[in-house]
Write a protein that binds this DNA or RNA. Sequence first.
DNA 1: GCAATTTTTGACCGTTTGGACAAACGTTAA
DNA 2: TTAACGTTTGTCCAAACGGTCAAAAATTGC
Lengths: 205, 205
Amino acid sequence: MDKPAARPKRTRIQREKRELIGEAALEVFSQHGFRGSTIDQIADAAGMSKPNLLYYFKNKEEIFATLIHRLMETWLAPLREMDATGDPHTEIRSYIRRKIEMARDFPRESRLFANEILQGAPRILPLLEGELKELVDEKAAIIATWMRAGRLKKSDPYHFIFAIWATTQHYADFDVQVRAVLGENRGGEGRFEDAARFLEGLFLA
Amino acid sequence: MDKPAARPKRTRIQREKRELIGEAALEVFSQHGFRGSTIDQIADAAGMSKPNLLYYFKNKEEIFATLIHRLMETWLAPLREMDATGDPHTEIRSYIRRKIEMARDFPRESRLFANEILQGAPRILPLLEGELKELVDEKAAIIATWMRAGRLKKSDPYHFIFAIWATTQHYADFDVQVRAVLGENRGGEGRFEDAARFLEGLFLA
DNA sequence: GCAATTTTTGACCGTTTGGACAAACGTTAA
DNA sequence: TTAACGTTTGTCCAAACGGTCAAAAATTGC
């Protein structure tokens, strides 16, 4: 069951153009959401005509789906790297660092993802209940072990992970608000470094 | 400058209907975002015809603006209540509790707000840079005092507030994801209580 | 060079959407 | 009763949108 949908063969041009469209779509979707974005906007951003774009993607839905599925992998990578045999504090610290770096370097990806979840995750709910849940179950178990061994302050490992997600992604998703509140002085690029240091202190007290 | 825009007099019916429309609009906007919602959907939800709705609100934009401005007040109320003369731990604990209760009881409001910020806060940026920043500056100063007095663990008061926002609102905005990951057993109503307890431990360590 | 194939585009279509409008309906008060 | 005012709706329109199609242009393989 559920075979990998026999990926169609693609020419070099097709791969390149699909990539180009993906980049343009990320830019547009992350700013206006799915319904708020038009195929024309994406085509413009990709420097091609609408019919040409639709030659590479069946429809708007498929562009979005391709994008968000590819994103999920990137998005989960940092958590995947968390190593049961490593030092708990080092592992958590690295995880927080990586997540903050992603918020800084890939805010569009974060916002696209946030948008999808906000709307009720209509396109990725199965992934959340499957792949994501499995991964979190696995890592939460590791964290629980660390806590039981007294190597990490005891708390609920699931909410611990949620809290790391929430706080780090906040700096991408709510960036406008963060900058508005911090103002001219502290709202510069340094805010990510400040955030990282604060979060290390918070989670590794 | 900037006079309160001379609020037009309204009949009882006008106030009631505008209230009714607001409720319907909240329901629709919070699910589909601004661009994803149609006036027809809102009119349906309010049990009236589209032209009738447009008799009470000039256009879609005005419905949204009215809604989100009214929301800001509700949204900031908990922070406003934080009292400099109170016991730091009690004050912070109450704040977290109230924010979690809001995530549980008013998730639509939270999502609407999140949506607006995600899109770059086009309609409320001035509010963020003005009223919100002032309030946060004031409360951050209080927290800083508490920290300097050794009555609260030292950290950056601004990022401290951000972290409380992020973690509490996460349970409204990312509710689908939270429930997907927690699964059948722990994803029930108890999750808010679990979250509150976890967050108290996290922020009041 | 040329035929087959892939890529690109202008023109077009049906639907949805925000919004305008005038006519109808209901209510109130003289 | 009726005039005035507030409320409601059916109808309509122009713009925007997702998507199609046939034909032109570019590329590839021989």
